[in-house]
């Protein structure tokens, strides 16, 4: 069923990471993603990996769900690490046909695997611990300076939160429509590619119609509550940076310093 697709799941909680300012979380994530790709030897890689584990443990979300999020990328990880494994430079330690195995290749494969895994885990940590509302709120606040160049920040943020809110609804709707068309003998699981694409028409048209209907309904509902865009609008829950966020920034700052120091004083593995 379509419903099984996990998308931007959020697990409510009160952990240290849950209570961080969502803006801080986004900024920290960006810095973290950059620093993942600045690890060039095993010490810095270990530092980053242990920081990731610490992050997962302090998020209060069961590690089971993190593993689940990794399942999706298993194929990409295997593919890229295999590619890297055989594209290393230097003396081959084993060779067969076009496959050349080098120390450099093995190192590269390990690095790319750990980096991708850390990347997914950290991004999952953000979506697991931050509700979609908080996320869009934070993005709106972070993009506020763009208002000066007449970029419609609030409108974009509102569109984002509406879109996120309708993902589960539309998935459920797709399920229902598919069942109804299957009951009328629609065949969606067999036949050539063109046939299968054609078989989607009876699902997509009702889905679009209902999406438009819902859009009209929600627009009317918003107007009934006097919504008229962003200017002069205040927040019910305003977000504030606190000591907690300062602590988080410091922690990541230390990791970044560690990685840089490792890079300067230790030899690179790749």
């Amino acid at each position: 069923m379509v419903r099984d697709v996990a998308f931007g799941q959020y697990f409510p909680g009160k952990s240290f990471i849950h209570r961080l300012d969502p803006r801080a979380k986004i900024l920290l994530l960006i810095a973290y993603l950059v620093i993942i790709f600045c690890t060039f030897n095993y010490f810095s890689l270990l530092l980053i990996a242990s920081f990731t584990v610490l992050m997962i443990l302090s998020s209060g979300v069961s590690p089971k769900f993190y593993f689940k999020s990794l399942k999706v990328i298993v194929f990409i990880v295997i593919f890229t690490s295999l590619l890297n494994l055989f594209y290393g430079t230097g003396e081959p330690i084993w060779q067969w046909w076009i496959f050349r195995l080098t120390i450099n290749g093995i190192n590269r494969a390990i690095f790319v695997t750990v980096r991708i895994i850390c990347l997914i885990l950290a991004s999952s940590c953000l979506t697991f611990t931050t509700s979609p509302t908080e996320l869009t709120d934070a993005i709106e606040r972070l993009m506020k300076p763009l208002n000066r160049i007449h970029f419609p920040v609030h409108e974009i943020a509102m569109m984002m939160s509406l879109a996120l809110r309708f993902v589960p609804t539309l998935l459920e709707e797709t399920d229902k429509i598919m069942a109804a068309q299957k009951a009328r003998g629609a065949d969606m699981d067999s036949g050539s590619l063109i046939k299968r694409v054609k078989a989607l028409v009876p699902v997509l048209i009702p889905l679009f119609v209902s999406a438009f209907r819902r859009a009209y309904e929600i627009a009317t509902a918003m107007e009934c509550r006097c919504y008229r865009g962003g200017s002069g609008r205040t927040k019910m829950k305003s977000i504030h940076m606190s000591g907690r966020d300062a602590a988080a920034f410091t922690a990541l700052g230390l990791v970044i310093c560690g990685v840089i120091l490792c890079n300067i004083f230790l030899s690179a593995a790749i």
């Binding site: 709707e173 229902k176 069942a179 109804a180 068309q181 009951a183 028409v201 009702p206 119609v209």
Partner: peptide
């Protein structure tokens, strides 16, 4: 015939 079958018309 499902509930609210009119949403399957296309």
């Amino acid at each position: 015939v499902f509930q609210y079958p009119e949403y399957q018309l296309f």
